[in-house]
Each structure stands twice: as C-alpha cells, then as structure tokens.
Amino acid sequence: MAREHEEQPMHPHAPRRQMTRRQFLSYTLGAAGAFMAGGVIIPMIRFAIDPLLKPKAVVPFVKVAELSQISSQPVSYSFQTLQIDGWIEKNVEQTAWIAKSSAGELFALSPVCKHLGCTIDWNSNPQHPNEFFCPCHAARYTPEGKNLAIAPAPLDEYEVKIENGFVYLGGIRPNTIAT
C-alpha cells in the first residue's frame, strides 16, 4: 500500500491551469471582434472579385451582313459588340473581312495582323494583288488568311452563323479555313 502511495504522489500545491478573468475577457472580445470584422470584410472581398468568380460569358452572335452580298472577294464589315472587362462595359467597334472560299464556304477574318497587331487591308499593295497586306512590316496573307510572309500564323477568324439570309458573327478563334 505504502508503495502505491509513492508511485502516485499527491501535489496539493501545484498551480492549477485556470483562465484569469482578464484572459477570458480578451479572448471573448477578440473572437467577437474577429467575427464582426469577417462579417464586413468577406462580403466586400466577394463583391470586389465577383467578375472573376463568374464563368466566362459566351460571346453573343451579332447580325453583320446579308448573305446574298457575300462573294469570293473579301469585303470589310464593321459591327459593334458589347465588351465586358471586369466592371467596365462598353460597345466596341469591330471589323471583319467576309468572303466565300473557293469551296463556297463562308468565312470572316479578323483584321488584326498576327505579327504585332496592326490592321491589315485587302488588295492595298499593288505589288501583291489579291492578298491581305499589313502596312506596318509588310506581312501578307492569302484571301483565306494563310500567312505568306512575316506573320507567324494565319489571320484569326470569327465564328459564323447563317440565319434567315443573314450572316451573324460571334467570338474569335484560330483560323480553320486557310490551308
């Protein structure tokens, strides 16, 4: 019995792990303060980054031209699209070169040169007739947008939809017609 006592000594004066009133008050007030601040800050952060949380919008199709007017000769058409950049919404003027390929397929090319982004023009250089030409560093493209000089890639194209005799253009994607 005496041995048992030795193994489990009693320490009647050991300090008790107890929270003081001051500690209790500061923990409680800290937690309440953090809860209230979170209630204000979290909705603000959500509001600020809301555009980033939204899934990327699909570019709507815009009516641009009458189907009957499209030939094998590229013609420039201008149209407006609504551009949403974060919180800023604005109408942006766009241009497309629309034509029919030798196989009769309708296509619409972006006028942005794939070299460094200048605006290309059709048939504007007498030395290179029936080609798209870039005035900046002389990049050249076939009517279907295939890159012939300077530019590293073919001209991009718009998604095309034909409905009730009209041509509608959507988002921009890499060229699928140039071979």
Binding site: C113, H115, L116, G117, C118, T119, C134, P135, C136, H137
Partner: peptide, 9 residues
C-alpha cells in the same frame, strides 16, 4: 485610330 491601325509599329 492611329493606335488601333498601327499597334505593332
């Protein structure tokens, strides 16, 4: 218009 047309140069 200048910036748009000649952005690369």
């Amino acid at each position: 218009p200048l910036e748009r047309a000649f952005a690369g140069r």
